[in-house]
Amino acid sequence: MTAENAAVNQPGRTEPGPVPVLNIANVLTVSRLALVPVFLVALFWAGGHDVVWRWVATGVFALASITDRIDGDLARRRGLVTDFGKVADPIADKALTGAALVGLSLLGDLSWWVTWIIVGREAAVTGLRFWVIRHGVIPASRGGKIKTLLQAIAIGCYLLPLGDAGEVVRWTVMGAAVLATVLTGLDYVVRALRLRAVGKRATA
């Protein structure tokens, strides 16, 4: 009897069932996506530069950003990874970040070239994911996680009503975020090309 058969014939042993789509990790992901319009309303309310509403917008953005870390940890620790989550999680992340960057640029608080670099990079990476998806999935790198953290902190600095006193801090953190965005984007291109080359050789 093989080890596989022995495992199957063990009394009381059950195979793990499929992971339900409706789980806490996916609920948090959808909640983050649902917070995007709430964030935009708070950001643009009262003309976009009301101190109270900027604090509200910052709080909503921070709450949504925190769920990004929590849902991923829960999915991995509790085995709640689903195909829905794999698709919805990056969409929610990009929707939140993109909405914040575009909103700040529309209000004149952030230069458009910064927004286009970050949004363009994210769109390009998404396209690369679909380009190599049949060959495999490129895991998130440590650099990518640092990039996401820097973007969130930089956006938070621009959302906070710090006035001219925070200008140096805002530009410093956003500069680091833009640099990380570009470098990790180039790294993703290299890894995508390698994965596609390996996949082609494997199928040849």
Rank of each mutant, 00 (worst) to 15 (best):
T2P: 03
T2A: 10
A7E: 14
N9L: 15
N9V: 13
N9R: 15
P11R: 10
G12V: 08
T14H: 09
T14R: 15
P16V: 15
V21S: 09
I24L: 14
V27E: 02
S31E: 10
S31L: 15
L33N: 06
L35F: 09
V38D: 13
V38A: 15
L40S: 00
V41W: 13
L43W: 04
F44Y: 10
H49I: 09
R54L: 10
R54C: 09
A57K: 00
A57Y: 05
F61H: 06
A64N: 07
T67F: 05
D71N: 01
D71F: 04
D73V: 10
D73T: 11
D73Q: 09
L74T: 03
R77H: 04
R78G: 02
G79I: 07
T82K: 01
D83M: 09
D83H: 11
F84H: 08
I91L: 15
D93W: 03
A95M: 06
T97C: 01
G98T: 00
A99T: 03
V102S: 02
G103W: 03
S105G: 15
L106W: 07
L107N: 04
V114W: 06
T115A: 00
W116I: 13
W116V: 15
I118A: 00
G120R: 03
E122P: 04
T126Q: 09
T126P: 06
G127P: 08
G127S: 10
L128T: 02
W131M: 13
W131E: 11
W131T: 05
V132N: 12
V132R: 12
I133T: 13
R134W: 10
R134C: 06
G136D: 14
V137S: 14
V137Q: 12
P139G: 07
A140D: 03
G143L: 04
K145L: 05
I146A: 15
A152I: 06
A152V: 02
I153F: 04
I155L: 08
L159N: 07
L159K: 14
L160V: 11
P161V: 06
D164F: 07
A165V: 04
A165F: 04
G166Y: 02
G166Q: 01
E167N: 12
V168Y: 10
V168I: 11
V169F: 04
W171F: 08
T172W: 12
A180K: 13
L183I: 10
L186S: 12
D187S: 12
Y188V: 01
V189Q: 08
R194F: 06
L195N: 03
R196L: 13
A197Y: 08
V198E: 15
V198K: 14
G199R: 14
K200W: 09
K200V: 06
A204C: 08
